[in-house]
Amino acid sequence: MLEARLEQANLLKKVVDAIKDLVQDCNFDCNDSGIALQAMDNSHVALVSMMLKSESFSPFRCDRNIALGINLGSLTKVLRCAQNEDILTLKAEDAPDVVNLVFESAETDRISEYDIKLMDIDQEHLGIPETEYAATITMPSAEFQRICRDLSALSESVSIECSKEGVKFNCQGDIGSGSIHLRSHTNVDKPELNVEIDLTEPVSLTFSLKYLVNFCKASGLSNQVKLCLSNEVPLLVEYALSNNSYLRFYLAPKIGD
């Protein structure tokens, strides 16, 4: 059986909120290392990969592998019934028909309990190769969100160019063009504002802004976001969570002329 207790419901609320517009029905794969999810959007252009390590829960118990097929719309409805600070416990039997969610208020003695019916989801699982990326940019997640939102007003696509000069986000649209240039930046007092660019070779890639704007819904999960790029491979956008847990998005590039 599965029993996983989260100190704050807020974490799961934010994760589900960040991915629910990209993917609808997903398997939450539970085993003794934690709860993982991998799902592609309908167009097979973007992929969500979530890992909530067992250390992110206290306690965490999962005796055998259980796949919980959950509709994220349904999960959102139930998670709305939890307060952000509630303690959340997920429970399921070994061959479950439902997943059980218990929300406990630390301040009052209120306990609420919900069951969500599970679905059989035959999901395509992709093997993501280990990649040594040519450029890794770590930057404030709010800054990345602002860039994507600002440029999406002008264009459908953004080119991300990374060189030893820094990183440049460029777009061209019907009304004109825009570009934002960032350099490495260290703020001793506010390290969450740091921009770090780790480059082994220059990179230039084009991506759909619609998806990037969608990924940025995860900005509330982490002060910083990591963008990993290599020419002609999917972009990795990573929001690191506590205890080595993470929410990652992969986005296939736009290629050729």
Partner: peptide, 14 residues
């Protein structure tokens, strides 16, 4: 204009 690729081109099926 460049064309949107899909992930299957880069990631293998498991």
């Amino acid at each position: 204009a460049p064309k949107q690729a899909t992930l299957g081109k880069f990631f293998g099926n498991l």
